[in-house]
Simulated scan of single mutants.
Amino acid sequence: MATHKPTSILIIHGAYFLPNAWHSFSDQLRQAGLVVDCPRLPTCADNRPPTATIKDDTAAVHQSAQRLIDGGHSILVLAHSYGGMVASEAITPELYANSDSNDGKGVVALILLSTWLVQPGDSLTGLIGKYGFQCKVDLGDNGDGTVFAKNAAESFYNDAESKEAEGFALRNVTHNILAASGEISGAPWKDLPTTYIHCSRDLAIMLPLQQSMVQDAVNTGGKIITKTLDSGHCPFLTQPEAVLQIIKHAGGQ
């Protein structure tokens, strides 16, 4: 639970998603009294061939956090899927609310919503080498450095009605296949109160892999508690009220 109640929430969306996937949930957060920012990650710009890397995503999120701090806000960061890797790189100590210069403004807590949780010094490739590719996403390769989810409706939205899932899938975009290939250096989950939301029916990052990543993080000093939802990969779409309650608890409400 956050030591200071957040006044804002910074959403870091996943690799094949856009901020518009979060619009409805963002409205609920605003109704709960929070300022919401969800910057578009440059690797999700649908550029072919791709022109951005995780460094560009990191810069975009870091800048958004700094703008919220400059606006006087304490921040809860909510990262989803690939967004967890971006959070590890972007949420650096100078953004923390307890840093000497921020006087209570800044990041107070972190929520990881079925994210890739990679140890510092490791990479997604190393993680998959250790635990296997526990993922049912059928990736299509455009041959230009971008990939896409051929079965997005089934793998990302399997707990939604089929027509609704197909509608959600139409919003998905391509992603730079190399964006998540580099070594991760940061671990804000060692410093900040962190909640990892397990999604038990997730086919994109399957539950045993979620659990293994969290256990590795706890074993190396992670300040992580867990919550579990009986959902697929995107409960902010299919179970928004349940996610909202976890956010309120993490924020001390």
Rank of each mutant, 00 (worst) to 15 (best):
M1R: 11
T7D: 07
I11H: 08
I12A: 13
H13N: 12
G14I: 01
A15I: 01
Y16M: 09
F17H: 15
P19E: 02
S26C: 11
Q31N: 10
G33Q: 13
C38S: 15
R40N: 09
L41Q: 03
P42M: 08
D46L: 13
D46N: 15
P50G: 11
P50K: 10
K55S: 06
T58R: 14
S64D: 03
S64A: 15
L68T: 02
I69Q: 14
H80P: 13
S81G: 14
G83V: 06
G84P: 01
G84W: 00
S88N: 06
I91L: 08
L95G: 09
Y96A: 09
N102I: 08
G104R: 07
V107K: 13
L110D: 00
L110T: 11
L113P: 00
S114K: 11
G121R: 15
L124C: 09
L124T: 09
L127F: 04
I128N: 07
Y131C: 09
F133P: 05
C135K: 01
D141Q: 07
G143E: 02
D144L: 13
D144P: 12
T146D: 08
K150C: 03
A152L: 11
A153L: 04
S162D: 07
E164M: 15
E166A: 15
R171D: 13
T174R: 12
H175I: 14
S181T: 12
G182P: 09
E183F: 14
G186V: 07
L192H: 03
L192Y: 03
L192Q: 03
L192G: 01
T195Y: 00
T195D: 01
T195H: 04
H198T: 02
A204M: 06
D216K: 10
T220D: 05
T238L: 09
E241N: 14
K248I: 04
